[in-house]
């Protein structure tokens, strides 16, 4: 019964989101672009709204679609898998995060390259060729929203950005309302496991922010990405383990972890990586998913 409710909620959200994504695209003509700061502190400015955009992150691709710029995208990465429309369109793939082809990017003649970060030297190389580069790497949900609004200003889609941000804020408030009903004593201690080498998300990461917003307590208290040793992993004894990597269930089924109550009692959940660790406009769905795993039925 609870599951059905969760699925229903998720469906509602999806429908709402789909509406939010597609609604502004055709209607509003773009206004004038504004200068914005990127996460390296540089000012980025476009003379006119971009016509040829290359997105080097799945989250950026989603954001651009959400701002109604889907038809301006001329290149994406191999990892960009959403929205579905990407599959139907002939669109250039320029590599992935670890293997980007500058030649391919330049060959697409972009007027804007959007990414979270770029390998050492590449942003300078693109900038030297007169290609505007917007780098924004959100480490919290608030920064995801900020990124959307900056991207909106940069591309002259201020209005669309405001709508998306407003909608996401609404959804965040809704979840915050539900989290508020959870008493301090009920709060769940969570471990966010990234891979079978026990790399985990610590403070200062987007994943940590999501756990906090979903009313959980991250058991990893040190900063950024942390690799635990087995002893520390057992000692932290979380109430719930969330993981994103394939094969996580098999990994946690190993007898050596059975001493952990959460493993024994099955409070281990696989998150949809494209929702819960992708700092795009579907981040609230990720948050929803996390909340549902931490506090089923609440």
């Amino acid at each position: 019964m609870k599951k059905i409710i969760a699925v229903l909620i998720a469906l509602c959200v999806l429908v709402l989101l789909a509406a939010g994504c597609t609604a502004p695209s055709a209607e509003k003509p773009p206004s004038k672009p504004e200068a914005v700061q990127d996460s390296l502190g540089r000012t980025v400015f476009l003379e006119k709204p971009p016509e040829r955009i290359v997105s080097l992150m799945p989250s950026k691709t989603e954001k651009l679609f959400a701002l109604g710029l889907g038809d301006k995208i001329v290149g994406v990465t191999n990892m960009c898998d959403y929205p579905e429309e990407l599959k139907n369109r002939e669109i250039a793939r320029v590599g992935d995060a670890w293997n980007l082809s500058v030649e391919h990017i330049v060959a697409l003649q972009p007027d804007l390259v959007a990414a979270n970060w770029l390998p050492e030297g590449m942003d300078r190389q693109l900038a030297d060729l007169g290609i505007a580069v917007f780098l924004y790497d959100p480490a919290s949900v608030a920064e995801v929203l900020e990124g959307i609004s900056r991207l909106g200003k940069l591309t002259g889609r201020q209005e669309a950005a405001q709508q998306v941000v407003a909608q996401l804020k609404g959804e965040l408030d809704a979840i915050a309302g539900r989290v508020a009903k959870i008493g301090g004593a009920e709060k769940v201690r969570v471990l966010y496991l990234l891979d079978e080498f026990l790399w985990t998300a610590g403070k200062g990461t987007l994943q940590d922010d999501l756990l906090t917003l979903a009313g959980g307590i991250n058991v990893v208290e040190s900063g950024f990405w942390q690799q635990l040793n087995k002893e520390a992993f057992l000692a932290c004894n979380p109430d719930v383990i969330l993981y994103t990597f394939p094969g996580g269930a098999e990994f946690l089924a190993d007898p050596q972890w059975q001493v952990l109550p959460c493993v024994r009692e099955g409070r281990i959940y696989k998150l949809d990586e494209s929702l819960a660790s992708r700092p795009g406009p579907r981040i609230t769905q990720g948050l929803e998913q996390i909340f549902s795993f931490l506090y089923p039925g609440r």
Partner: peptide, 8 residues
Amino acid sequence: LGFKGWPY
């Protein structure tokens, strides 16, 4: 040597 332009 990727991503290294003339300044390098």
